[in-house]
């Protein structure tokens, strides 16, 4: 992290994508995407299935590799440099649709694995940290259980806590409530709202438009790998500019 990045302007974007493109074989998933996210900003990404939302946010922590354009996180460019990848990943938490908790480890072990192995914390300190975040997501009493013994909503909150244990500055969410039964969606959204209120920088792929309205600073609409529209929620929902956005919103708000 010895790049000349410490001299960044205070309002420089913490995440910045320039002209990012990606192909799967002949198929172009991302077409020259530009995105700037400032520290503390909350961005909600929506769009039809297959439009490249997951691919976009997965490029930000290099679970996918972009082929054209440049991605910067805190001024550090995402290249194939292992050191940079490591440093960037430490600073970005990610929450998946299917939780992806480690089923062979207890909730507590799921949370302490990263801090102990990548942040070189003592076990006792890592456990204190883990309990702190389990209290934050309101399930400290589940610490000794195994993930599959919990409900979906509880599992997703554990997954959020696992990411928080790395004490990242940025959190990415890829449809965090899509795999949940309706009665559990709220508990996860509430956790996310609290996180937003604490000032976390967040990019959230979701179709929960209520969440977007209350939490987002910016709502981005993607279609066919392109960023079609990006606006603050009042404008995005009240007066969408693009025809495609309007059609999408009509479909999604009808339900």
């Amino acid at each position: 992290m010895s790049q000349s990045t410490s001299t960044q302007a205070a309002d420089a974007p913490i995440i910045s994508l320039h002209n990012v493109s990606k192909w799967y074989g002949q198929f172009q998933v991302l077409c020259a995407v530009d995105l700037d996210v400032r520290k503390g900003e909350r961005v909600v990404v929506c769009g039809p299935s297959g439009s490249g939302k997951s691919t976009l946010i997965r490029c930000i922590n290099r679970l996918e590799v972009h082929q054209e354009g440049r991605i910067f996180v805190k001024g550090l460019e995402m290249t194939d440099n292992v050191k940079n990848i490591d440093a960037i990943r430490r600073n970005i938490g990610m929450v998946f649709q299917n939780f992806n908790l480690f089923p062979h480890l207890t909730v507590l072990e799921n949370l302490t694995l990263g801090p102990m192995l990548t942040r070189h914390m003592k076990k006792a300190d890592a456990e204190d940290l883990a309990m702190h975040f389990l209290r934050k997501v309101r399930i400290p009493e589940q610490a000794r259980k195994y993930p599959l013994q919990l409900s979906g909503g509880q599992q997703q909150r554990v997954a959020i806590a696992r990411s928080l244990c790395m004490e990242p500055e940025i959190m990415l969410f890829d449809e965090p409530t899509s795999a949940l039964d309706p009665e559990m969606i709220k508990e996860v959204l509430d956790t996310m709202i609290e996180l937003a209120e604490s000032g976390m920088t967040m990019i959230v792929v979701t179709h929960e438009m209520g969440f977007a309205r209350t939490v987002a600073d910016n709502v981005v609409f993607m279609a066919d790998g392109r960023m079609v529209e990006s606006a603050p929620p009042e404008e995005f929902f009240g007066n969408p500019r693009e025809e495609r956005t309007r059609t999408f919103l009509d479909q999604i708000l009808k339900h």
Binding site: G93, N100, F102, H104, L117, T118
Partner: peptide, 25 residues
């Protein structure tokens, strides 16, 4: 695949991913 991705997202190194996540399962 999600297991490896989750491990990567908390910046585990490949050796640790193999040893603590993939192999035990």
């Amino acid at each position: 695949k999600g297991q490896v991705e989750a491990a990567r997202s908390i910046a585990l190194r490949p050796r640790f991913i193999m040893r603590y996540v993939v192999l035990p399962q």
